[in-house]
Computed example of a mutant assay.
Amino acid sequence: MGRLTSRVTRTGRQIGWYCGTLMGDNHYRRYVAHRTRTHPGEPVMSERDYWRMRYRTSEVEPRCC
């Protein structure tokens, strides 16, 4: 019974991670990691500004890298 519970829990976590990735839940975290790795010491956008910039459709801006 313990192995079954463990397997169900692990599968549930994997499904949650997959759905979160599809919905974009980790995009901001990846952005922050990228900025701190490639542009150390420079300011990082707030999460609110990041999403606003990401979904702005009227203007096209180049990426940093």
Rank of each mutant, 00 (worst) to 15 (best):
R52S: 06
R29Q: 11
R30H: 09
Y50S: 01
Y31R: 02
L22E: 03
G20A: 03
T21G: 13
R56N: 14
V60L: 12
Y18H: 06
N26A: 05
D25H: 05
G24M: 06
D25I: 06
L22K: 08
L22R: 05
E42M: 13
R13H: 11
H27S: 07
N26R: 10
G20P: 00
R29M: 08
Q14A: 09
R56G: 04
M53S: 09
S58E: 10
T11I: 06
Q14L: 09
R52V: 04
R52W: 04
D25L: 10
Y18F: 09
S46P: 00
N26D: 07
P40K: 03
R35V: 01
M23P: 00
W51N: 01
V60P: 02
T9H: 10
L22V: 04
H39V: 05
T21N: 15
T38R: 14
R10Q: 11
T21H: 10
W51I: 00
Y28H: 01
G24E: 04
R56A: 12
T9N: 07
R56T: 14
Y55H: 15
R37F: 08
Y31W: 12
R30V: 00
V60F: 10
T11W: 07
R30N: 15
W51H: 04
Q14C: 06
T9Q: 09
E42N: 09
Y55I: 02
R29T: 02
M45F: 07
S58H: 13
Y55M: 10
G12C: 11
G12H: 05
C19F: 06
T57H: 08
T38E: 13
G41W: 02
P43L: 15
L22I: 06
W17M: 08
C19Q: 07
R30I: 01
E47T: 01
R30F: 03
A33H: 02
E61Y: 04
R48C: 11
E42R: 15
G16S: 11
E47F: 03
Y55A: 05
D49R: 13
L22D: 01
G24C: 07
T57N: 07
H34K: 11
Y28E: 02
E42D: 14
R13W: 05
T11K: 07
